[in-house]
């Protein structure tokens, strides 16, 4: 009798297992497309970084020479750190201005103010434009002589504020980053708003009964529960600001003009890998090495950050 039951369950288990074989097919389509069009070309291109290149022609295998040159040979190392600094600034400003502002605006909308739907739409609208369009549009607006911004400033009597926004190295990079914030604000608001809305109503009610309000409520009750959305935005902003390319390219071209003041790592990579606009010489080996370094940097930092956040979450 007992043996019979046993064989029964074994059989059942076996059948279950057999049936579950099909499940392994589930990730195959995604893995196939992803592997073929993302992983394979990347791996193929990584090998470029171990070769010497003359123009667009592969030469001898040189091992880690390109990596060494990237960090020790002038002007390449200078350009690397210059661009790296700009990426750091890109990240910091986006975190403070775009995400900070978005958090606050999401908080306001969460207060159920009138017109919330329309407001959300307005904030999100820029995100629908192509980055190329955003770049061109703002280039026109920021034009020092005919652009709308300087015209508005002089109408407001702020003549002295007028500037060649994109031509002055002191303002060019900041201007681009702020345009990026303009572009990304709406998306960040929606993410934070989702975070606010996922806070259980009972919790807020209970806290209010305990007399918490305003900022106390925000800091004590909401903040910990907002951590997941803050985390997501931080990671996305980090990746995005260290790969900042399209907007800078659309507004300033591939030389990081003026005077390398808007150079970022991805623009620098593009310049090395594809040459400048008028057919400047390329340095594919060096460019590939740069891309690999950039990739590893982003990977490691993201992993560290996620790990740290996970630990914190457990502690809380």
């Amino acid at each position: 009798m007992q043996t019979m039951i046993q064989t029964e369950t074994v059989k059942q288990k076996k059948r279950k297992k057999q049936k579950r074989w099909g499940i392994h097919l589930f990730p195959i389509p995604a893995l196939f497309i992803y592997g073929l069009f993302i992983v394979y070309p990347l791996v193929a291109a990584i090998t470029y970084s171990f070769y010497d290149w003359k123009g667009i022609q592969k030469q001898a295998f040189v091992g880690l020479e390109n990596y060494k040159n990237l960090f020790t040979l002038e002007p390449f190392s200078g350009m690397f750190w210059n661009a790296f600094g700009h990426n750091v600034l890109y990240f910091v400003v986006q975190m403070v201005v775009q995400n900070g502002l978005a958090f606050f605006l999401a908080f306001i909308i969460f207060q159920k103010i009138r017109g919330a739907e329309l407001l959300k739409m307005a904030y999100f609208l820029p995100r629908l434009l192509s980055v190329i369009v955003v770049g061109f549009l703002w280039k026109l607006i920021l034009n020092p002589n005919f652009g709308a911004l300087n015209v508005i400033l002089s109408k407001l009597g702020l003549e002295s504020w007028k500037k060649a926004w994109l031509g002055d190295p002191d303002t060019a990079l900041m201007t681009i980053i702020l345009v990026n914030c303009w572009f990304g604000l709406g998306f960040a608001i929606l993410i934070f708003l989702a975070g606010f809305q996922s806070i259980p109503k009972e919790l807020i009610e209970a806290a209010r009964l305990d007399g918490a309000k305003g900022l106390t409520m925000l800091r004590r009750i909401m903040m910990p529960l907002m951590m997941p959305s803050i985390m997501i935005m931080t990671v996305l902003t980090f990746i995005q600001s260290f790969e900042a390319f399209e907007l800078v390219y659309a507004m300033q071209g591939s030389q990081g003009e003026p005077y390398r003041s808007t150079d970022t790592l991805a623009v620098y990579f593009y310049r090395l890998a594809f040459g400048g606009a008028t057919g400047d010489s390329t340095a594919i080996g060096l460019g590939s090495a740069l891309a690999v370094v950039l990739f590893l940097f982003i990977c490691v930092f993201t992993a560290l950050f996620l790990n740290y956040m996970k630990k914190k979450e457990v502690e809380m």
Partner: peptide, 22 residues
């Protein structure tokens, strides 16, 4: 127009620097 960056690009970049007082 050779080198990397090219001497031409270097001149352009440095002239920008000059006009910006740097």
């Amino acid at each position: 127009a050779g080198g990397n960056p090219t001497s031409k690009t270097t001149l352009e970049n440095e002239l920008q620097g000059m006009y910006l007082g740097k």
